[in-house]
């Protein structure tokens, strides 16, 4: 699947089963606002209208559930509108983590790494009605961990976003200047699931 987006693709995406909490979309809007200001939002919203998926970022209820595909539409539209590379999408993901209300509400899990990993799937379920996250291999002394994401094969763009997200999360729970996250396995790259290796 490419990065293109058009009306047809939008329709397809919207058919995807599964829902994500409004908070993601809101974060998208907030990031765009931060980066491109009000004009940026307007521009983006116009684009989305053209694509047949009119999203009004100001009216998104972050607590509500929206079609999971809608998020992808949002991300792709953003990429198209502003011509952002994938790294920027990662940044968006990290930003989302930082300012998300979910963090605030679930900060109780983020006080220790073990705890976070243990509750990772619980956290995931708050965000999505599809997919599961699993903590694989991890060694605190060696400072690495592997996270598996199953049944979440929506769009490659999401992988980039998730990378950012995971990075953001780990930052919260580990004091280190050097935190890296890599997708070692990706469904879209002939892997079974998504695997993320996090080092710090």
């Amino acid at each position: 699947m490419g990065e293109e987006i058009n009306e047809e693709i939008v329709k397809e995406l919207m058919k995807i089963k599964g829902e994500a909490r409004g908070v993601h979309l809101k974060n998208d809007g907030d990031f765009v606002l931060k980066e491109k200001g009000k004009e940026g939002i307007e521009k983006l919203e116009r684009e989305l209208e053209k694509l047949g998926c009119p999203i009004k970022y100001g009216e998104i209820n972050q607590f509500d559930f929206y079609p999971a595909g809608m998020r992808i539409v949002s991300l792709l539209a953003i990429k198209k509108t502003f011509g952002w590379p994938n790294e920027k999408i990662e940044e968006l993901g990290t930003y989302a983590m930082q300012v998300s209300w979910i963090i605030k509400l679930f900060a109780k899990y983020f006080f220790s790494i073990e705890r976070t990993f243990k509750e990772a799937s619980k956290i995931w379920s708050k965000y999505f009605t599809i997919g599961e996250i699993e903590v694989g291999d991890y060694d605190l002394s060696k400072k690495y961990a592997v996270l598996k994401l199953k049944n979440f094969n929506l769009h490659p763009v999401y992988c980039r976003c998730l990378k950012g997200v995971l990075l953001g999360v780990v930052r919260m729970i580990v004091k280190s200047e050097e935190i890296t996250c890599e997708e070692t396995e990706c469904f879209f790259r002939k892997g079974n699931d998504h695997k993320f290796l996090i080092k710090w």
Partner: peptide, 10 residues
Amino acid sequence: FVSPLGVIFE
């Protein structure tokens, strides 16, 4: 708001 690990959350 600071996490028990000393990271600023908000």
